[in-house]
């Protein structure tokens, strides 16, 4: 891998253009990553050990909650986002631009502010419950529950699901869709057998772009989860910044989380390819 990189540097013209990025990546990504690995196998006394990893067993609940909430938010984003992306792809001109603007607008506001806004909506005496009681409906206890965290994640990450799907659907050759109609496919058939399979790459990158930040989020879970449903992000933060200062354990948690995320991405990509193969056969 690294040799390939070096060879590319030597043989490709324009390699100088990539140099700043490569230096940047080496300094601030590769070296810190190596440090994380180093720390996770080290005890505070400086010796090599697996202690950090055996301690992890006590934090299984955090792992379970993080992956479950991230997966749930990803599914909700997909269920909301795919139809939205499909509908947007069929609009033209002003209508699509308006939809795009509405989708992007929240992203211009600082994420922390957005999340605090949700706090005041979901609070026990917040906007939502005021509305419910005004309508004489029973109020809901959402704030400081996993549900609030899921709501926050869906709200924050939805654009990251919609945009890749929209891009891929827009790129589908119009004449391929026409060919499917021409061969006898009604709208549903054309969608099921042409548009959906051809948009899978967008779905996969959408899932990745929601799931990965979802697993490691700590702002959303801290703000909306209220410490009752701590996620991995918070746990890691505590090890580095909190009272329980233990960067060795923090590194081990980060490393394991990263490995699990990478494995799930690999499995999903394989599943995606398999899907395509199945349809081919």
């Amino acid at each position: 891998m690294r040799r390939g990189l070096l060879r590319a540097l030597k043989t490709r013209p324009g390699r100088l253009l990539a140099a700043p990025y490569i230096v940047w990546m080496a300094l601030f990504t590769v070296i810190p990553l190596l440090l994380v690995v180093w720390f996770s196998f080290t005890t505070p006394e400086g010796g090599f050990s697996f202690d950090n990893f055996s301690q992890l067993l006590g934090y299984g609940a955090y792992f379970g909650r993080s992956f479950w909430l991230a997966a749930l938010s990803t599914v909700i984003c997909l269920v909301i986002g795919y139809p939205l992306a499909y509908a947007m792809s069929r609009e033209t001109g002003a209508m699509r631009n308006t939809a795009m603007l509405l989708l992007m607008l929240p992203m211009w506001i600082n994420m922390l502010l957005r999340t605090y806004a949700w706090m005041s909506i979901l609070e026990n005496r917040g906007l939502l419950n005021q509305l419910l009681s005004f309508l004489r409906l029973p109020t809901l206890h959402i704030i400081n529950t996993p549900a609030a965290v899921a709501v926050g994640m869906v709200y924050n990450y939805l654009p990251f699901m919609v945009l890749p799907i929209l891009t891929v659907i827009q790129k589908i050759d119009k004449s391929v869709v026409e060919a499917a109609q021409d061969l006898g496919g009604n709208q549903l058939t054309v969608f099921k057998r042409v548009v959906l399979p051809l948009s899978l790459p967008g779905v996969l990158s959408g899932i990745t772009m929601v799931f990965v930040p979802g697993v490691s989020t700590f702002i959303i879970s801290q703000t909306l989860g209220g410490g009752n449903s701590k996620m991995l992000g918070e746990l890691i933060e505590m090890q580095f910044l909190g009272g329980t200062y233990n960067p060795y354990l923090g590194s081990a948690i980060s490393l394991v989380m990263m490995v699990i995320v990478l494995i799930s991405m690999a499995v999903m990509n394989r599943f995606g390819e398999g899907e395509e193969e199945v349809m081919v056969l």
């Binding site: 004449s175 026409e178 060919a179 496919g185």
Partner: peptide, 19 residues
């Protein structure tokens, strides 16, 4: 609509299903 006509089309740039 096209899918109910007894005609079929060979498109200019083939328009084969890539998947």
């Amino acid at each position: 609509p096209p899918h109910k006509r007894r005609v079929n089309t060979v498109f200019q740039k083939y328009a084969l299903f890539p998947h």
